[in-house]
Design a protein around this nucleic acid. Structure first.
Lengths: 198, 198
DNA sequence: CCATGTTTTGACAGTAACCCTCAGTTTCTA
DNA sequence: TAGAAACTGAGGGTTACTGTCAAAACATGG
């Protein structure tokens, strides 16, 4: 999932530059804080010009906000067997992706999350990113059943799932990781039993 | 809900200034677009200095993002009779607030929403604001039952409700208004019937 | 190996949001 | 009515972000 075809020399260099910028940015954010770190500093540390920074990342926020796992989760959901109902397909898809992460990837993810939590501005954008995932998930679930993503049923299920994930992520210490899966399952059971209109 | 006690002269003048800034900002956003409108223009139109603008609103975004209805909804939920289950209390609380809005208030709300939709930056912040409402709703629901807002049950219900609201708000044309209530009820029924784990 | 076109890059300048300080004025309180 | 406290206006400084343009690095056909 990480290794891709080397394609051309140009592509490889680009990927390298991109990684260098992100790595140095994360380090500087941790050392000095997000606000105190200027784009110029990141650019200098990564040995590129500030304008190059903005060619790779449209905003300073994006250098840390970019999430690589969304497309992978979509794939995993698509791979669930046909009989599995939507909610279960969602849950199992997420589970399979997260369980496949290496310890290194978890560590990197935790670093990101820790920086998010400390900076309200970033937290806000991360949340809105999560909300946008509703569309994607609804589309994937609908497709599995030969329907379109406009179908209210799939939008509702995807929305509820995303809502629950956000709700059970503890406000302060939140880093969605392995142990949190048990809580998600518990939450879904609670929802199943308590979501009664009358 | 709009009229408050005049308190002192100072308070009244402050409220007036605040309203003037918001009104002129909305007008300019509609006329020239959000990005093309500078804070200086808004300040001049409202006849205050730019620094005064920032004393009333921490950022340019906040001038349009501020939502007056959250505390009102909380009140309405609190006012639901004791026997009513959480999901219904939520729904009925929202209904009572929205039905009480005057046509003028709906019009103003629609203006806000229309500007949101056009500007991705604002949409993002509006969403994250909605997500933050989960905490508030969970707390209110829990309190009704003599529990604390940490209780997973209430967090899950509030999260699912907020997720569903966001999911059924159509991506493009969205302005959450009167007719959308029927859709919310429909969505909740769908969730009730289809949220089965196996 | 070289000539061609495409992509990436860095320097520079400009705009606008945002923050701070310092007077001067207005409003509240005793 | 005097002093305290808050509000206001002006100006300056920092930084994120955009655009242009020429130079350099790379890919490709002969």
């Amino acid at each position: 999932m990480t290794s891709s075809l080397p394609a051309g020399l140009r592509e490889r260099k680009k990927a390298k530059t991109r990684l260098a910028i992100r790595e140095h940015a994360m380090r500087l954010f941790e050392e000095q804080g997000y606000a105190a770190t200027t784009v110029d500093q990141i650019a200098e540390a990564a040995e590129v010009s500030p304008s190059t920074f903005f060619r790779y990342f449209p905003t300073k926020e994006d250098v840390i906000l970019i999430d690589d796992y969304d497309p992978v989760i979509v794939e995993a959901i698509r791979d669930q067997p046909a009989g599995v109902p939507p909610v279960t397909a969602l849950l199992e898809g997420m589970r399979s992706v997260f369980l496949a992460l290496t310890e290194e990837e978890w560590a990197s993810e935790r670093r990101r999350q820790r920086i998010f939590q400390a900076v309200p501005e970033l937290r806000a954008r991360a949340m809105s990113q999560t909300v946008m995932a509703i569309d994607m998930l609804a589309g994937t679930l609908a497709e599995r059943d030969g329907r379109t993503g406009d179908d209210l049923t799939y939008r509702v299920i995807a929305g509820a799932m995303v809502g629950v994930v956000m709700a059970i992520t503890p406000p302060g210490t939140a880093t969605f990781e392995e142990g949190d899966f048990r809580r998600l399952e518990e939450a879904l059971h609670i929802l199943e039993e308590n979501f009664r209109l009358r």
